[in-house]
Design a protein around this nucleic acid. Structure first.
Length: 361
DNA sequence: TAAACGTGGAG
DNA sequence: TCTCCAAGTTT
């Protein structure tokens, strides 16, 4: 059984924290293309669920600075979920190129098509309903429900984990502490303005309650923060150590015909860079197996391409060739030079192209 | 539960 | 150079 008096005190503290945070947000909310201002909402304007969803997916593990340009291009090219659902896969993957975590783009299309096919073109207006869609997990479902539909869902991202772990001085390391942090966040979440509250928590984490050197001196929750009082704010949240990254190697084959056509392939829909355009190559492993896609006078390029993924370093050797017009590759196909936009490539492949291009005849 | 899954910026 | 980290989801 829970202690009624202590619960009452905790509720008062939670209400105070939410009120302080919302007051701070009203003065300091950052302007972003996917947000409506409190003033606009007071005038009756509602956030567009499509834009809220699109921004939240783009923002998964990705900085606001990186997302801005992509959000603008996507919404200009595909203004509604129906427009996106009707887009060609290759166009969406190309537009996402460079943003990373490409499963998001694949699921983005699946989700848009599911909304059109199964939900009459309207996003479900509850956390539970949203959770059933591809690419929408616990965080995104709660965020869209709160921001677009005013549902008091408990929104917990990395910012909220940090803010809450400090506010309550939770010393258990992540990810073990996650359930406790969600419970604490639930206790803070108000019934009124849940969308603003969620965005306020995330803005606070992004601008004041930062991972390193938090600006406790100007924090609206200063007076309520247990970690600040204990002098350990900068040490929280504690995290379990991460495993070291191994180095893998591979070979990329860059073939450009005399007419300028470039050999490219669309990568398999699963796995690393899945669904993205790229150069044909070997596997990536400790001991890669060469796999030239056609008989040609391949010559090793005088450089290597290094790239680091989430869980390993990659060192690519590049082989160059200028095959005849008649060459028939076993993998990929030759793309006319004027149809090849290097910007459609994921960053690793763009690095390969930028390194190889000056060495072509 | 843990591993897979990108990238660019900050310190 | 190198580690950490950013509005996580899927398998």
């Amino acid at each position: 059984m829970r202690d009624g008096m202590r619960d009452g005190a905790a509720e008062l503290g939670a209400a105070a924290a939410a009120a302080l945070l919302l007051a701070w947000y009203d003065r300091h909310a950052r302007v972003m293309p996917w947000r409506t201002s409190p003033a606009d909402r007071a005038a009756g304007e509602r956030p567009d669920p499509y834009r809220v969803w699109l921004s939240e997916v783009m923002l998964q593990q990705t900085t606001v600075a990186a997302v801005r340009a992509y959000f603008r291009r996507f919404t200009e090219r595909w203004p509604t979920v129906a427009d996106l659902a009707a887009a060609a896969d290759a166009d969406v993957m190309a537009e996402w190129a460079g943003l990373g975590y490409y499963a998001r783009a694949r699921n983005l299309l699946k989700c848009a098509r599911a909304v059109v096919a199964d939900h009459s073109g309207e996003f479900p207006d509850t956390e539970v309903g949203l959770r059933t869609l591809p690419g929408i997990g616990p965080y995104t479902a709660a965020a869209v429900a709160a921001i677009a539909f005013d549902e008091p869902a408990v929104v917990v991202d990395g910012n909220v984990e940090r803010v809450v772990s400090r506010l309550h001085a939770v010393e258990t390391p992540l990810p073990a502490s996650k359930p406790a942090l969600v419970a604490l966040a639930a206790g803070l979440t108000p019934q009124q303005r849940p969308g603003d509250f969620a965005q306020a928590m995330m803005d606070l984490g992004a601008t004041i309650c930062t991972p390193r050197k938090p600006a406790c001196g100007i924090c609206p929750l200063w007076s309520l923060c247990a970690a600040r009082a204990a002098g350990i704010a900068a040490d929280l949240p504690r995290k379990s150590p991460k495993p070291a990254k191994p180095t893998r190697r591979g070979i990329a084959y860059v073939a450009v015909r005399a007419d300028g056509a470039v050999l490219l392939e669309t990568r398999p829909a699963k796995g690393l860079l899945g669904g993205m355009l790229g150069f044909v190559g070997s596997d990536w492993s400790e001991d890669p197996v060469p796999a030239p896609p056609l008989d040609a006078g391949w010559s090793p390029a005088p450089f290597a391409v290094r790239h680091t993924f989430t869980h390993f370093h990659l060192e690519l050797t590049v082989h160059l060739a200028t095959p005849p017009q008649t060459a028939a590759p076993t993998r990929g196909s030759f793309t006319p030079r004027d149809a090849f936009r290097p910007g459609d490539l994921p960053t690793l492949m763009l690095k390969v192209w930028q390194a190889a291009e000056p060495h072509l005849p």
